[in-house]
């Protein structure tokens, strides 16, 4: 056979090679796009927090409106019902912290982050996609940040966006923007608390995802871990009456931190620093697991 070459069809490269900064954004964006393809889970998971946000927003609005006597068409009975819904304390901060620690909201935020994050690394490993990622000029940090942002995005949709919506309603409903002027710290605390909670569960979900090769297994492991620690902490507390065992529970710790951050009266008898320490340890260990697993993945690639 006559040998031929076909180099003439390729144009020689002219120009300079440049690497894009913030490469993790590309990974995050592709993760978000891929996960958003199925609309039904998104709707099912974001629906309940959204509904809760609407109810809490209404309570906030109604509280301000009642204070000003500006609710046309509402009679005394209805006003009482609204106030009963709002609880004894009609403070906006109280409503917001109630929303943030509301069991339904908390459960669905965990479910949303777990659902969309469980497959982020596990499926890459199963399908060998990490081999493609790490054969490109992408660092471990780029990969981790990309996956983290993609997962956290859905957490933000479930928690941060509704929480900000309640704050916005409060801002617009308050007389003379008093909410923004007098209680601006509540807005900052809302953002900080939501971001911290989302970051912790995102790191947890991704760490579990990096340990298994199937999304479903990661999902089961996340819920298993959360419910198991909850049950263990309950049993230990019940039998020993020592509240330190409650520090094993993620939910109790976040409740305690919410009480502290929003200056709410707490029913727990331990210092917020203990919860902060427990949550920080969990966060640090998930990051350690992630770093260790990603290093293994990179070595294989």
């Amino acid at each position: 056979m006559k040998a031929t070459t076909h180099t003439e069809i390729y144009r020689p490269f002219e120009g300079t090679l440049s690497t894009r900064s913030f490469r993790f954004l590309t990974i995050a964006w592709s993760g978000i796009r891929l996960a958003s393809k199925k609309k039904l889970p998104l709707l099912v998971m974001l629906g309940p927090p959204a509904m809760a946000a609407i109810i809490f927003s209404f309570i906030v609005y109604a509280s301000y409106a009642l204070q000003k006597g500006e609710v046309p068409g509402i009679d005394a009975g209805q006003a009482q019902m609204v106030l009963a819904l709002a609880g004894k304390n009609t403070e906006v901060a109280e409503q917001i912290v109630s929303f943030l620690t509301f069991p339904l909201v908390r459960g669905f935020v965990l479910l949303t982050v777990a659902w969309f994050g469980a497959g982020m690394i596990a499926e890459d490993r199963r399908l060998g996609a990490h081999l493609l990622y790490f054969s490109r000029p992408i660092t471990r940090l780029d990969y981790l940040l990309g996956k983290f942002l993609a997962t956290a995005w859905f957490g933000c949709l479930a928690l941060l966006v509704p929480a900000i919506a309640i704050n916005t309603i409060a801002a617009f409903s308050s007389p003379d923007w008093s909410y923004v002027k007098d209680q601006w710290d509540v807005i900052l605390k809302t953002v900080a608390f939501s971001a911290a909670w989302i970051a912790i569960i995102t790191a947890l979900v991704l760490a579990v995802s990096s340990l298994v090769e199937r999304k479903t297994l990661a999902l089961a492991a996340v819920f298993g871990l959360v419910f198991l620690t909850e049950a263990v902490s309950n049993v230990l507390f019940q039998l020993t009456h020592e509240s330190r065992y409650r520090l094993l529970s993620l939910f109790r710790n976040t409740d305690r931190l919410a009480d502290w951050a929003f200056a709410r009266k707490t029913s727990y008898d331990w210092a917020p620093e203990a919860s902060l320490c427990a949550v920080s340890m969990l966060f640090a260990s998930t990051l350690f697991v992630l770093w260790w697993r990603l290093r293994r993945m990179e070595e294989v690639a």
């Binding site: 198991l228 049950a231 049993v235």
Partner: peptide, 9 residues
Amino acid sequence: ISFWLNLQV
């Protein structure tokens, strides 16, 4: 332990 941990989780 049987009720709260074993049976339920």
